[in-house]
Simulated assay, not measured.
Amino acid sequence: MGLLSSLGITSPPPPKTTAPDRSERAKCWESRDLFFSCLDKNDILDSIKDSDAANKECGAQLKGFERDCASSWVEYFKKRRVQEYKKAKLLEQMEAEGGQPLNAVAVAAEQASKK
């Protein structure tokens, strides 16, 4: 028994190091979807850049999201939301300008046949 434990001082338990199971992932995704739905209703795209507005309008959903997901997942999902939006807008712009989507497998096969 150490000195600190004899004084009634205990250290917090170590952080969870196992990967989340299926039900924990589902709970995380549900919380993420609730938070993102709130952001959509309030026309907030980037909850990192617009953190004040996101906290004001969707604070309860954000707390649930942060509680139910690993912090690395929260950051990843927030950044991915912005990336997916930019990707969709770029594709819309390219299609409006007459661009055609490329099939990567077909392009690779065509390039290989030219060699």
Rank of each mutant, 00 (worst) to 15 (best):
A26D: 08
Q111H: 09
F77W: 14
E75M: 11
W29N: 09
R25C: 01
D46G: 06
S37M: 04
R81G: 05
S47H: 10
Q111C: 10
K56C: 10
Q111M: 14
W73H: 12
G59Y: 06
Q93F: 10
G64N: 15
A108P: 01
E84M: 11
P15R: 03
L34I: 06
S71P: 03
L39Y: 00
A109K: 15
A19I: 05
G98D: 06
E24L: 02
S72I: 08
C28W: 08
D33H: 10
S47W: 15
T17K: 09
S11Q: 12
V107C: 05
G99Q: 09
D50I: 07
I48V: 13
P20A: 01
S37Y: 05
L34V: 06
N103A: 09
S37Q: 09
L39G: 01
P14S: 07
K27I: 01
A112F: 04
K16V: 15
K115I: 08
E84Y: 01
A60P: 01
E97C: 09
D33E: 12
E110K: 12
T18F: 06
M1Q: 11
K86R: 10
Q61W: 03
G99K: 06
M1N: 08
P101T: 05
M94C: 15
V105R: 07
F77L: 02
D46L: 02
S113Y: 03
K49P: 03
C28T: 03
L34W: 05
V105W: 03
G8Y: 04
A26K: 06
P101I: 04
A109R: 13
D46Q: 06
K115P: 00
G2N: 14
S71V: 11
L45Y: 14
C58A: 02
G2R: 08
Q93W: 11
C58H: 03
S51Y: 05
L91S: 05
R67G: 08
K41L: 10
T18V: 09
T18R: 11
S72F: 09
T10V: 11
C58Y: 05
A70F: 07
V82D: 01
L91M: 10
E66A: 15
F65W: 12
L34T: 10
K49Q: 14
D50T: 11
P101A: 07
E97P: 04
